[in-house]
Design a protein around this nucleic acid. Structure first.
Length: 212
DNA sequence: ATCCCGAGGG
DNA sequence: CCCTCTGGAT
């Protein structure tokens, strides 16, 4: 079996397992999702959900956050990593949404990545979970870890990993790759103690410690 | 390459 | 104590 065939089989199994899974970040509107993803950098989704519950009950939309007191936003975000950056970014992004997009989230990745605190990972997630738009591969912490373990890429640099994945997989699987690897990374293939004994692709994984 | 920067787990 | 958590901007 070639590397390409093995990678495709891994993706097919994971897609079956994770297709249609809901977004782990809680939100009511695309604006709420966008701001939640900004806040999710280097931070667990459970923690973000705790903060957004308080934040959105007080400031439900872009206009409210745009006009909020920054020090108060910092207090609400205090339990998040990089909370000062994130408070500044969700307010600055909210202001742009109000001024340029009528308080809504644009459905275009080129527009999204211009927003403060938003780059490709955030934009890809928002397009997928808010609008059902496939925005292709982005290498986040989960995609990086699983790509190495699964033998998809030996590179360290995120852009090089992405190039390897693009080479390895057909374009039709790029978006699925991002979603499936992140879900599998969260639920089974953890950083510290990967649950290889219950992993559906253990027999295809060169790093598996136990065969299923 | 470095900074931001808190909480939970091992 | 060290590592990890769906990064982004300088």
């Amino acid at each position: 079996m070639t590397d390409r065939q093995r990678a495709l089989q891994v993706l097919q199994r994971l897609n079956l397992l994770y297709a249609g899974s809901p977004c782990p970040l809680e939100f009511q509107t695309p604006v709420q999702l966008l701001l939640a993803v900004i806040m999710a950098a280097q931070c667990t989704d459970e923690r973000v959900n705790q903060v957004t519950a308080a934040l959105y009950s007080r400031y439900p939309d872009a206009a409210a956050i745009a006009h909020a007191d920054l020090a108060e936003l910092e207090t609400i975000l205090q339990s998040l990593s990089f909370f000062r950056n994130k408070a500044k970014n969700i307010q600055a992004t909210s202001q742009v949404l109000v001024e340029k997009y009528g308080g809504e989230v644009p459905q275009d990745i080129a527009q999204l990545v211009k927003l403060p605190g938003v780059a490709r990972k955030t934009a890809t997630m928002v397009l997928h979970f808010a609008y059902g738009i496939d925005a292709g591969i982005t290498v986040d912490t989960h995609v990086k870890r699983l790509s190495e373990r699964l033998g998809f890429s030996q590179q360290k640099d995120l852009d090089k990993i992405e190039k390897d994945l693009i080479q390895l997989l057909p374009e039709s699987e790029w978006g699925n790759c991002f979603v499936s690897l992140t879900y599998h990374g969260r639920s089974v293939c953890n950083a510290k103690k990967p649950a290889c004994n219950i992993c559906t692709v253990a027999d295809l994984c060169p790093s598996a410690t136990e065969k299923a």
